[in-house]
Every structure is written in C-alpha cells, then in structure tokens.
Amino acid sequence: MRETLEVFLQLKKEFKVAVTVFLSRAGEEVARMYGVFRELGTIAPGGYYQEVVLEREEGASFPKAGRFASGKYSAFIVSPATSNTVAKMAFGICDTLITTAFAQAIKSGVPVYVVPTDYDEGEVETTLPVFVDRDVCLGCALCLPEEKCPNTAFVRVEGKPIVNLLKCVGCFLCVNECPYRAVVFGRRVKTRVRRVDAENVKRLSEMDGVRVLKHPQEITLYLRRDLGF
C-alpha cells in the first residue's frame, strides 16, 4: 500500500494529475493499521474529484462509483488488489465500492490497471502490521506502549498485551516505547499464493479494458505508454 502511495505522489508531482481515492471498508482498516490513511490527503487533498471516498460512507449503492460515466477519469487503478477483490472483479461480482467502481469503469470505457497482492502461484513475502512478540514481552505491570497508545489499541490477554488492529491507527509510537523491543512493526514473513488466486489473476488479465501489473512501480510506465502521461 505504501508503494502505491509513493507512486501517486510522484504522478502528482510530475503530471499535476487530480486523484480520487476509493477505499473499501477493508482497505480503510488496512490503510489505518499500516499508517497510510493519514497520508492520503497528500494525493487527494479534497475538492472537486480529489477527495477520499470511503465505502462506509457510500451506502449500499455506492453512488460515487457512477462518476466513471462522466468522462472525467483517464484511468482507474486498483492497487493493491487483494485476492478477494481480484476474484470478485474476475467473476463480475459488484458488492463493494471497489468492485462496483471497477464495473462502472469498464462499462464507461475507462482503462483499468490492477496490481494484485497475489500474482504468481508460489512463495511470497509480506509485511506484518504492529504486533506484540509474546516471546520477548515480559508482561510488565506498567506497559509503556499500552499507556502511551492514543487509541487504546492494546488489550491484555493472559497477562500480556496484544494489539487490536481494528483500533490501531498506525502511529507506531508503541514501537519506540517498549524498552525490550517487544512491539514490532514491519516484520517480513513468508506466505503462499494459492493456485486459485493465480488463476483469477489470469482470468482478470484476459478481460477487455484491463491491464494487470506485477508491481506498483509499473503504473507510471503504463500510464505513460497507454495514455501519454
């Protein structure tokens, strides 16, 4: 998600483009826990077609997804696209803000670029959000990360704190507060891309009007090539 933010910051700097950010409910939660949500105003500062559109504020019909018929958008970029979102787009399911916007963009002839989180079947690395390493945590009676958390995102389980990620806002104050370094952010772990997820990516890539990319850095390359940015 941060890689995508950096790409759009560069696009705005180079080409002075206006950006609307569409966030699903899940996307908003993840953006908050990874510390990206509070930075979205740097690419979508507000104003005409430059706002952050949140699914939780859009009702059941997602009316702002209908904007693609207005002819105001040069492209619709879904990045990062989870395996769940990819599967829904590939099979025509429109029950979230993002999948509905995807369908509206296709219907309106707006080019779509998708950057899946799960591209090829096999082993990949991913970055974990903030968590408490319970093998390191001593279960201090006075836990500084717990005390200093501005959103009371820590709860005690069996005498040691854990992070409620749905309350975490990605400020990372807790990471620096623990003297034993038991609060961790950014740990890389290995996981696997399922065959079904890779197959859905392939199915999506075969749809008219859709280009599937492997990395957010490719967004600028293809916008230049396809749209003359």
Rank of each mutant, 00 (worst) to 15 (best):
V175I: 02
L138V: 09
G170T: 02
N200C: 10
R56P: 04
T99H: 11
V210M: 01
R67E: 02
E28R: 13
K148D: 02
K190I: 05
L221F: 12
V212M: 07
Q10S: 10
T191I: 10
I162E: 05
E14D: 11
F37V: 05
M1A: 09
T85W: 14
K13G: 03
F68E: 00
P116H: 06
T82C: 13
Y73D: 05
D135W: 01
L54M: 15
A60Y: 05
A182G: 14
G71K: 14
L128H: 07
A26V: 09
I98H: 14
M207T: 10
R194E: 03
V155H: 13
F102C: 09
D95N: 15
V193T: 08
Y34F: 14
L11K: 11
A87V: 15
V189G: 12
F102I: 09
E206T: 06
A87K: 15
A87C: 09
C137G: 02
V124E: 11
Y34S: 07
K167T: 05
L40H: 12
F68G: 07
K13R: 05
A60H: 13
P80E: 08
Q217W: 04
T100S: 12
A103S: 12
L23W: 11
T191P: 15
R25H: 06
R187L: 00
M1D: 06
V193G: 10
G47A: 03
Y119A: 07
V132C: 01
M207G: 00
A101V: 07
D118W: 03
K88R: 09
G139H: 09
G35C: 08
K72N: 10
V17G: 13
C174A: 11
V110D: 03
D133F: 04
K88V: 05
A65W: 01
F131I: 00
L40W: 13
V21E: 06
E51M: 03
R134K: 11
C140P: 13
C168P: 01
V52N: 12
L227D: 06
E39A: 07
R194Y: 02
D118G: 07
A18V: 04
L23E: 07
Q50D: 04
T191Y: 06
L227Q: 15
A141R: 15
K88H: 15
A65D: 02
M89Q: 06
V212A: 08
